[in-house]
Simulated assay, not measured.
Amino acid sequence: MSAAVIVFPGSNCDRDLAVAIREVTGRAPAMVWHRDSALPTGTDFIAVPGGFSYGDYLRSGAMAARSPIMRAVAEAAGKGVPVLGICNGFQVLTEAGLLPGALMRNAGLHFVCRTVGLKVENSQSLFTSRYRAGEEIAVPVAHHDGNFQADAATLDRLEGEGRVAFRYTEEVNGSARSIAGILNDAGNVLGMMPHPERVIEAAHGGTDGRRLFDGLVEGLLA
């Protein structure tokens, strides 16, 4: 499997994500700079990492969403290539229009950095096939602008179409309906605030994130 990790000025989880992908696939991903205009030929999977792209000026992810490489990411997503956006990557995907809604300042106006409980809402997607619907897992968060918001009609549509992938089991940041991760309508784009790449080995304190990557690889190689 050939993967690509998008790197922006201010990304600080790109190497963590690359290590996780290499650990699961046995192959290091391409590290693609934001000013590039094309992805490597044959890219099977795209990951947009956490961090503080462009220093989080304007809105988090707003400047990164207009980087040249995001046009190539959007084009690939439109062709069915899986795209995973984690934390700042989730913010970038919403700002780029690949996912609905917006990530606002946390309700408590504080940076939140701790392991939180997540409920798996959809186990039928490419990203969640190794989980059970209703299962509770533990994944760390680290964000200041993770408060997911959308209008009521959009929230109802996400719920009705089974596009809520993960939901917080506790109060974390004020997100509408405790939403922690959502899918696009085609199911090949996932944005989530928690960091699955930080829990792929027991030495990291847990392995609940590894199944996301395992399931993705299994689905792509099927």
Rank of each mutant, 00 (worst) to 15 (best):
M1D: 04
M1T: 13
M1R: 03
S2K: 15
A3D: 00
A3C: 14
A4P: 01
V7I: 13
V7T: 06
F8M: 15
P9D: 11
D16M: 03
D16L: 01
L17Q: 06
V19A: 15
I21P: 05
R22S: 14
R22F: 08
E23P: 00
T25V: 01
R27N: 11
A28Q: 10
A30G: 04
A30R: 14
M31F: 14
W33K: 06
H34R: 01
D36N: 15
F45Q: 06
I46G: 08
V48N: 12
V48F: 11
G51C: 07
Y54W: 14
G55P: 04
D56P: 13
G61F: 10
G61I: 02
A62F: 05
M63W: 10
M63H: 10
R66K: 14
I69W: 09
M70R: 08
M70A: 06
K79I: 01
V81P: 02
V81Y: 04
P82Q: 07
V83L: 05
G85I: 00
C87R: 13
G89N: 12
Q91E: 12
L98Y: 06
L99V: 02
L99F: 09
L99Y: 09
L99G: 08
G101C: 11
G101A: 13
A102F: 13
R105F: 04
N106Y: 03
N106F: 03
A107E: 14
G108E: 10
L109V: 08
H110Y: 11
F111P: 03
T115H: 05
L118P: 00
V120E: 08
S123F: 01
S123D: 15
S125T: 05
L126W: 11
L126H: 01
T128L: 06
T128V: 01
S129W: 07
Y131L: 03
Y131C: 03
A133L: 05
A133F: 04
A133T: 15
E135I: 02
E136N: 12
V139T: 13
V139E: 03
V139P: 02
V141L: 06
V141G: 07
H143T: 02
H144E: 12
H144N: 13
H144K: 12
D145I: 09
D145S: 11
G146Y: 09
D151T: 00
A152C: 02
A152E: 15
A153W: 01
A153V: 13
L158Q: 12
R163C: 11
F166D: 01
F166N: 07
Y168Q: 02
E170I: 00
E170N: 04
E171M: 05
E171C: 01
V172A: 08
N173H: 05
G174V: 13
S175T: 04
S175Q: 07
R177F: 03
R177W: 03
S178C: 11
L183I: 00
L183P: 09
A186T: 15
M192R: 11
P194Y: 10
P194D: 05
P196D: 12
E197L: 07
R198H: 09
R198T: 05
R198W: 13
I200P: 00
A203V: 01
H204F: 14
H204Q: 15
G205K: 00
G209A: 06
R210C: 00
F213E: 07
F213A: 07
F213Q: 08
D214Q: 11
V217N: 00
L221S: 15
A222L: 07
A222R: 14
